[in-house]
Design a protein around this nucleic acid. Structure first.
Lengths: 257, 257
DNA sequence: GACACTCTACTGGTCTGACCAGTAATGCAC
DNA sequence: GTGCATTACTGGTCAGACCAGTAGAGTGTC
């Protein structure tokens, strides 16, 4: 006979658990409305404070959205990659996890995304990738260099391009995780602002990235899965090559190719 | 001139944000104690209810641990892969994300983990892998078949083996994500209990997995990175081969090899 | 009938103040 | 010193109150 450890579960956790299991089992769908707090305190036989704590947790984890005054009650939300982004970011603050780890992880994810995208038969998704690559090319061609918004736009377009590849992989987990890592890296980059390159160097970078994107698009279009993975990792490696120390680059190398 | 959208930030979010930024900036470390709720309501000039809502969120996301009666106050916790596991699991409840996605994602992660582990020079970590593989082998040799705990133990040892590989990769993100996906799959498997194979088939499976593990250990030891990735994905593919439909297996194939 | 407006009955957000069960450390008895 | 009751806290929960905000019903206008 084996005993299970008794877990003391608090009232608010009970409410969270019940609502989450409602979603899990398909009784609650994104867009559905929950009863109001005053209603919930009756159905769960607890005080409003307890109900509120449960709602706060659900709100903070992106499960529901609460808006004061809305008589329809809290809304059940669809899943968002942001929910992954927070714990991922938090992890990088931890002793032992470095930015290099984050980049290595990204390299790994983007590589496999490219592979899956190339292997996929989803032509529509492949066309979206081509369109995003074209966007980058267009920006590169028209780039003057003096534009203040250029770094921002460059980042957005490049991010969109990678996002399209992840979407074409057909795996939502890959998509969400990739997006979260991407977001985390953007946040980190924003925090350590100032390492923006000069505008001529930036244009150079942009041109290079646009060409890389075009080449990768070709591989994916042709369905060369292994080639796409190789190129995707090489591209990202090159992107980071002169931004990281040799030591940091060393951890990326095994994944390239 | 560009304006930024005004974000209405509620009181409790402010507290959460301040405590999280304290951790982010290194003023708060795991193991540190926060002031008690009554103290916090003074420093933040809010009511206890608001402080509590903030603490609940921090507690639910694994940032702090609160214990009633402890005069030292809430404890700041180190990061745990569990924090990733919850949103990951939640994602699979979503329309459009299937178990096959989860398994595909796992295949992808384990493959890259094996590659990095093989490329790594960390001999200690490699020895741990060998030890875990030996554990599996020992269980396989001594397996009677009638043991009720066998499925459980098999799962734990296999999980430990993969965990050791992820650890050897040297990337904490890979480690945490892999662990989370592993945990999520275990949870899913537990939910759909009943598909446990007969005890003879289980022993067969166990033997097969133990041999696969031994072979993979060899590759990693020898530093054959690409070979290790190939074998790792093949092993997992074989593991799932007769548990999934052909359609589900099809999404895994591009990653094998 | 279509539209713009006001109003009302709710919503969630916050506060106050209270009681209870649990715990760490204090200090006492031995 | 060691073991144990005490104490002064802690967080968990409850009740009741007020406020600002919103959706939708109701009203008026054209």
């Amino acid at each position: 006979m084996r005993f299970e450890p008794v877990k003391k579960i608090s009232s608010y956790e009970m409410i969270v658990e019940q609502i989450e299991s409602g979603i899990r089992e398909g009784n609650l769908h994104p867009g559905d409305r929950l009863p109001g707090e005053r209603r919930l305190m009756e159905t769960f036989s607890v005080s409003r404070a307890t109900v509120r704590e449960a709602m706060r947790v659900l709100h903070a984890t992106g499960v529901v959205n609460t808006r004061a005054g809305d008589p329809r009650g809290p809304e059940v939300l669809p899943f968002t990659p942001e929910a992954l982004e927070r714990p991922l970011l938090r992890m990088t603050y931890q002793e032992g996890t470095t930015r290099a780890d984050l980049i290595q992880f990204r390299l790994l994810l983007e590589g496999q995304s490219a592979l899956l995208a190339a292997a996929s038969g989803d032509q529509d998704a492949k066309e979206v990738i081509a369109a995003r690559a074209a966007d980058l090319m267009a920006l590169a061609d028209g780039a003057a260099g003096a534009d203040t918004d250029l770094p921002e736009e460059f980042g957005v377009l490049l991010s969109n391009f990678h996002s399209a590849i992840r979407a074409a992989s057909g795996n939502q987990l890959l998509q969400a995780t990739g997006q979260a890592v991407d977001g985390a890296l953007t946040t980190l980059a924003r925090q350590r602002l100032g390492d923006e390159p000069g505008s001529t160097a930036l244009v150079q970078r942009l041109r290079c990235s646009a060409q890389d994107a075009a080449a990768l698009t070709e591989y994916i279009h042709d369905g060369d899965a292994v080639g796409a993975r190789k190129l995707a990792t090489e591209n990202i490696y090159r992107f980071y090559k002169d931004r990281l120390t040799d030591q940091e680059l060393a951890v990326l190398e095994p994944l390239v190719g």
